[in-house]
Design a binder for these strands. Structure first.
Lengths: 130, 130
DNA sequence: GCGTGATTACTCGGATACAAGATGTCCGAGTTTGAGCGG
DNA sequence: CCGCTCAAACTCGGACATCTTGTATCCGAGTAATCACGC
């Protein structure tokens, strides 16, 4: 039970983008250099964020990535769901839908998700300049 | 980001044990038959629960597993930590301890764990006779 | 009938096999910008 | 100076390679209860 590294990269990248001007396109190159990860791998992660409508990409020279929403509208949960997928943490093998254990686990999960949904990334961007 | 099947088996097994007399030893055979999983695999899972002091094992003929605590003292979190380990969901690759993103994730996690710590398994055992 | 040994029914633990998913790389294709070149 | 072409700087996507982890099996060893046998 762990979040993937990809989620970590995605979160940091978005925060990093928030620390730049809204209009400034950032190339994978620069981002990858800054975080010291491979460009191709980071590119794959960013593609997922594009599909989730969190960022936009423009190709060609001077292309790059840019936030597609207001900073205030991007939550931790948005990023996490985009990368990890939105399937539940817990799935009971035995009973389909009526498992009491399952219900408790889902309840616990939604509690956490609620918190991550309310927590916006720009709150971090202000103080953490990494 | 998913809980393993092993956790699911462990939770169901403990609930199942709670639905029997406190003194009744249950062999892996019977448990595995009931849940239709392999004995050897279930045995491995139960061994982890033994190490976490949640159940006790006695070998030899008429051996088997038995709860080592009062029903009221076993929470969901106990089982989960025993199987999944107690390392955090999220680990930031870049900064060691001072990462703001990390802090938020840890906060979210502990929120969920708090819930699972308060939730006891015997609450389920009563109504769910699976 | 009683002690001793063998059998049986269990758990325990290590080694191993297999599958799936996370992580990461390679490369070819498409796209846009801008520079260079010819008329 | 205008327009065309071409190179450069990008993203995109599929196909792969590798590594880790979860899932599962096999087997030999240890252990305790019970049965059988001989004295």
């Amino acid at each position: 039970m762990k979040y993937s590294k990809a989620t970590n990269y995605a979160l940091h990248t978005i925060v990093y983008m928030m620390e730049h001007k809204q209009s400034e396109k950032l190339s994978v190159q620069k981002l990858a250099d800054h975080f010291k990860v491979s460009t191709t791998y980071l590119s794959k992660i960013l593609t997922q964020l594009v599909k989730a409508d969190l960022i936009e990409s423009s190709s060609g020279v001077k292309g790059g990535y840019i936030l597609s929403k207001k900073r205030e509208d991007i939550s931790f949960l948005d990023i996490i769901l985009a990368i990890e997928g939105n399937s539940a943490f817990f799935k009971c093998e035995f009973q389909e839908s009526n498992c009491s254990i399952h219900k408790v686990m889902i309840e616990a999960e939604s509690l956490m998700e609620k918190y991550l949904e309310d927590k916006k990334l720009y709150e971090i961007a202000k103080e953490d300049n990494f």
